[in-house]
Simulated scan of single mutants.
Amino acid sequence: MSTTTSLLIRKEELSSTRLHTATDQPLAEGQVRVRIDSFALTANNITYAAFGDAMNYWQFFPTGEEGWGCIPVWGFASVVQSLHPGVAVGERLYGYWPMASGAVLSPERLSPERFGDGAAHRAALPAVYNQYFRCQADPLYTADTEDVQALLRPLFITSWLIDDFMADNDFFGARTLLLSSASSKTAYGTAFQLHQREGIEVIGLTSPGNVAFCESLGCYHRVLTYDAIDAQIAADTPCVYVDFAGDGPLRAAIHARFADHLRYSCSIGGTHLEQLAAKGAGKSLAGPRATLFFAPAQIKKRTAEWGADAFGRRMTAAWQNFIAAVTDARQPWLRVAHHHGAEAAAAAYAQVLAGRGDPRIGHILSLRERPGGL
């Protein structure tokens, strides 16, 4: 009998992990089993864990063990067993997986490009996370860029939607946007989009050690350290704050400095986990109420307005432009570090959770050992 290994996270103590191996159960009619070959691990996944209960992220891949969860990740898998007539063994899929060596799906609403997972426990969850893209017909897929797709595709979609949401609301009457955690992938993807809009100033906020990296990207008009905000940006500047850091004191300081000149404030995720998880971090702030940006809501709005095909075409064109910049051989924005095997994956998770490392490094994990054991 085959087995599946999963990396489980203690929900109330995200630094506590353990590996769990279980014997695979026989498939039911209409199900498929996949081998999860590789997936990305970024600060975005830590956000999933931090908001696991509030945003239902733990519900996608329930562990059946009280207090323990499995963090969703984005990556690639191959079908190794199929009892569904529309999905063949060997088919390559991109989508939302557990941090595991394998998974079982119940494909429904099949098209040449994608299908949904019809598992009962996922029925009430956002549809955007339940879609699996069939690589042979996926316009965003190229076999030689799987690592970059896993690392940046879900983040860039969020970035693209943030830019679209801001433009859709005329930037709330402001023309200066402040992006915290400017070295993070979702932040610089957002900056890449915003930088293309005339009359908009994009200011990246980051720590001293990441200033040079952020400046090298060319998508920020200015890059400032957090302690330089007061000296470099006038307090009466109409601005929007896009919070990728989840740092409560920083958010409070920005609200206090700009007050009513801060036209909008939203939180995307968090790289400062202890602040992100702090209860009441968004209360009692000067200026506008800080809100959580929820990408599926903008997807739903634009799909209704533009139609699914037009939505896909626009996003694909933006993605291709972004990837061309990221993978430019003269100055690539990203270098990939691979981690093979369950123990290596657990160690990589601890590193990403701690928020340490070179912003140019993207982590690709597999709970399977490297082929050949090397």
Rank of each mutant, 00 (worst) to 15 (best):
155 L>M: 10
188 Y>V: 04
220 Y>N: 03
128 V>I: 11
191 A>M: 03
133 F>Y: 02
225 T>K: 06
150 A>Q: 09
225 T>N: 10
196 Q>K: 09
165 F>G: 10
206 T>K: 13
191 A>C: 00
241 Y>R: 08
160 W>G: 04
220 Y>I: 02
237 T>E: 01
149 Q>P: 00
117 D>Q: 10
185 K>S: 09
198 E>R: 14
172 F>M: 09
119 A>D: 10
250 L>H: 10
235 A>D: 10
169 N>H: 15
189 G>R: 02
248 G>L: 07
158 T>I: 15
128 V>L: 06
136 Q>H: 13
163 D>F: 12
227 D>C: 02
235 A>C: 11
219 C>P: 01
120 A>I: 08
216 S>Q: 07
137 A>V: 05
178 L>E: 14
244 F>C: 11
120 A>Y: 07
147 D>E: 11
192 F>L: 02
203 I>N: 12
187 A>L: 01
162 I>A: 13
231 A>F: 05
250 L>F: 15
179 L>M: 14
150 A>P: 08
234 A>E: 15
132 Y>T: 03
220 Y>V: 00
222 R>M: 01
182 A>M: 06
150 A>D: 05
187 A>R: 06
173 G>Q: 03
179 L>W: 03
140 L>R: 07
127 A>I: 08
202 V>W: 00
181 S>A: 14
147 D>C: 04
214 C>R: 01
142 T>F: 09
115 F>Q: 07
183 S>N: 11
245 A>N: 04
136 Q>Y: 11
160 W>A: 12
248 G>V: 15
172 F>G: 08
168 D>P: 00
232 Q>D: 09
240 V>F: 02
199 G>M: 01
179 L>N: 07
113 E>M: 13
122 R>M: 08
140 L>F: 14
182 A>D: 06
150 A>N: 06
118 G>C: 05
145 T>E: 15
167 A>W: 01
195 H>Q: 12
213 F>W: 08
194 L>S: 00
236 D>N: 05
210 N>A: 15
193 Q>M: 15
127 A>N: 04
212 A>Q: 14
250 L>D: 14
180 S>D: 10
128 V>T: 04
111 S>D: 10
191 A>S: 04
135 C>N: 00
138 D>N: 11
161 L>S: 14
248 G>W: 07
236 D>G: 02
241 Y>Q: 04
246 G>P: 08
219 C>M: 06
145 T>L: 14
187 A>C: 11
132 Y>K: 00
124 A>E: 11
229 I>K: 02
195 H>S: 14
200 I>S: 09
179 L>A: 05
